[in-house]
Design a protein around this nucleic acid. Structure first.
Ligand code: MN
Ligand code: MN
Ligand code: ZN
Ligand code: ZN
Lengths: 126, 126
DNA sequence: TTATTATTACAACTGAGTTGCAAATGTAGA
DNA sequence: TCTACATTTGCAACTCAGTTGTAATAATAA
């Protein structure tokens, strides 16, 4: 959806997702980069990167919006659907590279689904 | 968690969940009952009913909070975990009386999970 | 009926996310 | 390299679901 210009904001945000292999919330990115870039810019860049199939988004436990890198998506085909894991101890959110078996639901057309699993992550699980 | 008094607000809210067998968002309840009761009251009664194991809550697609009746829960044991279905056409949200098979995730302790399935409901699915 | 305590209304607040717009900047084409 | 122009940015103001403090009110037990 539209041209992506190699602006400073796009560069820095993409770098953030490259260094950490986890999901990042818009709020966390604003906390971290809010003095360098305006929060509106951050929201809009994330939005655009999602439109372009670079990032995908989902809602975390408190209704906050989270983003993570897509693998093999394009602006027309967002087939990067997988469950997410949120650590209730450290707050970290990860994409799970597994497929979910949805329950059978008669007489309904399933279009999307989102599974959020919460618990203790590898580091916090003693 | 604390005594529940049979107040007008509790009565009316419980009645709302009895007549319709679907989930209701706090927002919808305020739209509907906001002239009769203050929105703060509605939020607080819903909160308390959840604490008492009468209702359970979850987040819908836009991050709105939804509530539905529990079956066999108490204030100490909220074992009413099941997926929810939200119709993308009419907005209706239902509890699905099925169990979800969670994917295997090594080295992590799963505590909670929430699955939201979206699509077309029985009425909207032509 | 009265004392106690939970519940309510109200108004003010919170905070993630959005919007409109003018200024700044990236990029294609000359 | 320069120019034109569409895209992107910062800013300030806004939205709106949900929260908080508090004084008044209502349910319940004694
Ligand atoms: Mn993901
Ligand atoms: Mn339910
Ligand atoms: Zn953790
Ligand atoms: Zn429907």
């Amino acid at each position: 959806m539209g041209v992506i210009r190699k602006t400073k904001a796009v560069e820095v945000l993409l770098a953030a997702f490259d260094t950490k292999a986890v999901a990042l919330s818009a709020k966390a990115l604003i906390d971290q980069l809010g003095t360098t870039f305006n929060k509106t810019t951050i929201y809009r860049v994330l939005d655009k990167l999602e439109d372009d199939g670079v990032l995908h988004s989902f809602l975390g436990k408190e209704g906050l919006k989270w983003y993570a890198k897509c693998h093999g998506c394009t602006s027309t085909a967002h087939h990067d659907v997988h469950p997410h894991f949120q650590c209730l101890n450290c707050g970290k959110v990860e994409c799970l590279a597994v497929s979910v078996t949805l329950p059978k639901i008669p007489n309904r057309k399933i279009e999307v689904s989102q599974l959020l699993i919460q618990g203790k992550c590898e580091e916090c699980f003693i």
